[in-house]
Design a protein around this nucleic acid. Structure first.
Length: 466
RNA sequence: GUCCCCUUCGUCUAGUGGCCUAGGACAACGGCCUCUCACGCCGUAAACACGGGUUCGAGUCCCGUAGGGGACGCCA
């Protein structure tokens, strides 16, 4: 049996972090087993679904690098099929018309709750003659759930979960207006798509019991279930828009790398011994549902940030430059010219050691791209006092004649100069840094000089005196 | 309220009856490195929710309590 998994978001908003993790786990599980991973948009609720949300979700998944196999399925397109199945159920006596008005149902629900019952619908139309109905109520269609016994689900993550069947409502599968509900549609679509493993959030665990019986009553093979616990905010509550759950594009905007996000999400609830840094290839090889934890996890930005720094350091220089170029141009308010790009590429290695996200990387890269004279920070200005300027002028003379323009030679030259002046290296290096970068913080000053090259270095020393 | 699920350092977690005087990672703190800032390295502090069992032995198994979460829609 080939594994088929699916991620089935409803397009009512952006792709948040919890959905992203669900998608990741589904993707990983399918990849691990050489199966396929599908995307299904659950847009049965036409009122709340939007085109924009669909687009956001797909671009979010795209950014994360979770490509689905085959075309996405839109649940609403299977409308006729859903209705046909409901009618079949009706014909077979496995479903029935319910003539309750919304008011009646609310009343019933309140009464049930007051009496401490879990099942909120009392099955009053299950065996009643439709002739009893008042003509002005359009009926909905409900499926029959078993009345006795218990339902047991062997959940791949939660283990054996059981519930008394008496707690299961005969729920609505067709609204009075004839449209199918989610509970019916999921089952049909999962079956039609050949989904073998339903991996989704814990908030669906209760639905699984109901869906189980729909599969059964239809005579279809019930897929495996795996319910993963939800991601909580730092306050311990389910992550929601109100609880600061951000769309994945927000993390893109924060300069987070998809690889870092994948690694972070993977370790939230899943583990492989003490391993922390796990490449996607390695994750595919190792991923297993049995290693998924049952307890909810809290989202921790610090750890994501740390991981992101790691992946930035590991990134290829050219890729990083390409990623930050647009950001740099925006900060600059002008496109980056070729000379600046060359300097940037030469200097990015030193920069990436220090960055936690792409935005920070772009900001620290600015000095390579700016035109002379460089703006100076307040601290940098202070460093460049009269004495420091005199020293730099003298140093420039030496630098102009230095043999080969590499780190070692430059360091040797500057150290020699400092010693001759009876100064510590820092007393020369700091003003030099101020002149070359406009700041007191930068990568090693000798690598900066190499990235800048001789002409630009000397020019910056000269113009910093202005 | 009812049903379902969960409970190891602040956070993510390792741990599947003896290897645990509980390990790793992030964060915190201290130090080293050093031309600044990072990186890196070394170190410190920090947890088995509680109570009963079972067992020669329990973080690990069972029961209960407490706490937390999720679900209770003609939403998905």
């Amino acid at each position: 049996m080939t594994v088929v998994t699916r991620f089935a978001p409803s397009p009512t908003g952006y792709l948040h972090i919890g959905g992203a993790r669900t998608a990741l786990f589904n993707w990983l599980y399918a990849r691990h087993h050489g199966g396929s991973y599908r995307l299904r948009v659950e847009d049965t609720d036409r009122k709340r679904s939007t085109e924009d949300a669909v687009e956001k979700i797909i671009s979010g998944l795209d950014w994360l690098g979770l490509q689905d196999d085959g075309e996405p399925v839109f649940q609403s397109q299977n409308f006729d099929r859903h209705v046909a199945v409901a009618e079949q159920l009706l014909a077979e006596g496995k479903a029935y018309h319910c003539y309750c008005s919304p008011e009646e149902l609310t009343e019933m629900r309140e009464a049930a709750r007051a009496e401490g019952r879990t099942r909120l619908y009392d099955r009053r139309w299950r065996d009643r003659d439709p002739a009893d109905a008042s003509a002005d109520v359009a009926p909905s269609v409900r499926v029959k759930m078993p009345v006795e016994g218990e339902t047991v689900i062997a959940d791949l993550i939660q283990g054996e979960v059981r519930v008394d069947n008496d707690n299961l409502d005969d729920f609505i599968i067709l609204r009075p207006d004839g449209t199918p509900t989610y509970m019916l549609a999921v089952v049909i679509d999962d079956h039609d798509m050949g989904v073998t493993h339903i991996i989704r959030g814990d908030d669906h665990l209760n639905n699984a019991f109901r869906q189980y019986h729909v599969f059964e009553t239809l005579g279809w093979q019930v897929p495996e279930f795996a319910h993963m616990s939800l991601i909580h905010g730092s306050d311990g509550a389910k992550l929601s828009k109100r609880h600061g759950a951000l769309g994945v594009e927000a993390y893109h905007d924060m300069g987070i790398l998809p690889a870092a996000m994948r690694n972070y999400l993977l370790r939230l609830g899943w583990s492989h011994g003490d391993d922390e840094i796990i490449s996607t290839e390695q994750a595919i090889e190792w991923f297993d549902l049995s290693a998924v934890g049952r307890a909810p996890a809290r989202f921790d930005m610090d750890k994501l940030t740390n991981l992101n720094g790691h992946y930035i350091r590991e990134s290829n220089d050219g890729d990083l430059v390409a990623l930050i170029l647009p950001i740099v141009a925006e900060l600059l308010g002008a496109p980056v010219d070729e000379a600046a790009k060359t300097r940037l590429l030469a200097g990015i290695g030193g920069l990436k050691e220090r960055a936690k996200n792409l935005n920070e990387l772009a900001e620290t890269a600015l000095f390579y791209c700016r035109e002379r004279p460089l703006p100076l920070t307040e601290k940098a200005t202070k460093l460049l006092d009269g004495e420091a300027r005199d020293n730099l002028t003298a140093l420039a003379g030496i630098l102009a004649d230095i043999g080969s323009w590499d780190k070692e030679a430059l360091e040797a030259g500057v150290r020699e100069f400092a010693e001759a002046k009876d100064l510590k290296l820092g007393q020369i290096a700091q003003p030099l840094r101020a002149a070359l970068t406009g700041s007191t913080v930068s990568p090693g000053i000798f690598e900066v000089m190499v990235a800048l090259d001789r002409a630009e270095t000397l020019a910056r020393i000269r113009t910093s005196k202005a």
